[in-house]
């Protein structure tokens, strides 16, 4: 259950970044990037199926468990290999690794999803599918494509 992003809704307010930092005591695990003046894109951990960060982790602090990534702080040595093995650059290392854990200990799902004022983030697969379908339908129905 990763976090899905609808970029066309994102207003670039960075509320998700702030919510993540508050939830994780100053160690945010996501970053909002701006592509020229076209769009704002929050960059998240993809919760990869064959996760590179888990492959490289020699003390097995990062492990894939079902759909989720489990991070064991006790085992982490802070070598920093996982940060450089992540294709999307969403692992930060500062003494120990900081990586999105989908706010496991928080009631009511991830903090960024709850905080997003524009409904650009959601963790519901059906919602993601619904939006993708409506986007495709709109593109088909609009002559000359969607702006």
């Amino acid at each position: 259950m990763p976090i899905y992003i609808d970029i066309s809704n994102c207003i670039g307010c960075r509320t998700c970044e702030a919510a993540c930092q508050i939830e994780h005591e100053g160690n945010g695990r996501l970053n909002v990037h701006y592509v020229e003046d076209l769009a704002a894109v929050p960059i998240f951990c993809h919760q990869c199926e064959a996760a590179c960060c888990a492959t490289i982790c020699s003390p097995r602090a990062l492990q894939k468990d079902g759909e989720m990534m489990i991070f064991d702080e006790e085992k982490c040595t802070g070598c920093g290999l996982c940060a450089f093995a992540c294709p999307f650059g969403v692992v930060w290392v500062d003494r120990i690794a900081h990586k999105c854990d989908l706010c496991r200990d928080r009631e009511g799902g991830p903090a960024c999803v709850a905080a997003c004022p524009a409904q650009a983030l959601f963790d519901d697969f059906d919602e993601a599918m619904r939006r993708a379908r409506s986007r495709t339908a709109l593109a088909l129905a609009t002559p000359g494509g969607v702006r």
């Binding site: 076209l38 769009a39 894109v41 999307f88 969403v90």
Partner: peptide, 19 residues
């Protein structure tokens, strides 16, 4: 570098969703 990886990803996603 990590910053550029995120930038590349942001550009890729923008190109996909907002052609």
């Amino acid at each position: 570098c990590l910053q550029c990886r995120r930038n590349v990803e942001a550009k890729r996603l923008t190109g996909q969703i907002l052609p």
